[in-house]
Design a protein around this nucleic acid. Sequence first.
DNA 1: GATAAGGTCTGTAGTAACTACAGACTCAAA
DNA 2: TTTGAGTCTGTAGTTACTACAGACCTTATC
Lengths: 137, 137
Amino acid sequence: MGDHVSGKGLKRADLARRTGCNLETIRYYEKIGIMPEPPRTASRYRVYDERHVARLRFILRGRELGFSLDELRELLRLVDRGTQTCAEVKTMTEQHLAEVRTKIADLKQIEKVLAATAAQCSGGEVPECPVLETLAS
Amino acid sequence: MGDHVSGKGLKRADLARRTGCNLETIRYYEKIGIMPEPPRTASRYRVYDERHVARLRFILRGRELGFSLDELRELLRLVDRGTQTCAEVKTMTEQHLAEVRTKIADLKQIEKVLAATAAQCSGGEVPECPVLETLAS
DNA sequence: GATAAGGTCTGTAGTAACTACAGACTCAAA
DNA sequence: TTTGAGTCTGTAGTTACTACAGACCTTATC
């Protein structure tokens, strides 16, 4: 069913396989309205096509790049509107890029403290520990 | 009440002020067993002392350094046992450090893609957009 | 045709680490 | 005494999933 109708009807598991997405996540994306409700067979099985594959890939790629689902929803809204401008998308991307850079800076600071502290450890069977002192300070 | 008993009884809001911790978070940490249940007044108000301040600061500092609550629970268990060794703590720290470094590497890769893509944007009022093409690819 | 295996359906619960709120109670000061 | 502020409890909401139970459907095999 689905697949033989026109040679391109995909079931949920097919969509999952094609995109690498988790099976349940597809349903979740539909529920929160970031993936459109697909047509159904008579017995209520979801039927996807290539546009669903493309959209889900877009979302997954965006997630890989650290966009939140809300940001992707907005990005997709611009795409769907069909009249988005490069300027709008660029602004969102630069905002996100700034957040990513902030996170990197935060983590680098954490790394610095952890590395410096661990380096002070004797690693021996002693109760004194620089890490615990750092945490307590 | 609390404060005048011996000059060091702290109420929940006092503990929050002293540590910078959110008021509700204190109750949450108690609920999940990472902060001990403090003694109570007759009317069931929590009463904290300096040891609670120290422990909460330990937790908050650990969170700042990216340790999970589970990791901190383990760290505190070692502390409470009183016989922890520097070696045990060092191992946990180095494991965490490795995770932090992985996260930094991931984010740097993301940053690279985002920066390169945004740089390609004309920023103009055109519908073509390198960001969207990157996401779709 | 019967049956068994596997896919899909729904709703719901669990995860991390909080944060916030409602409604009841208590405390301190004017 | 009354008012305002603080505290108590339990519970719900957040992000982005993931997993499961129990019912239904489809497909293959005999």
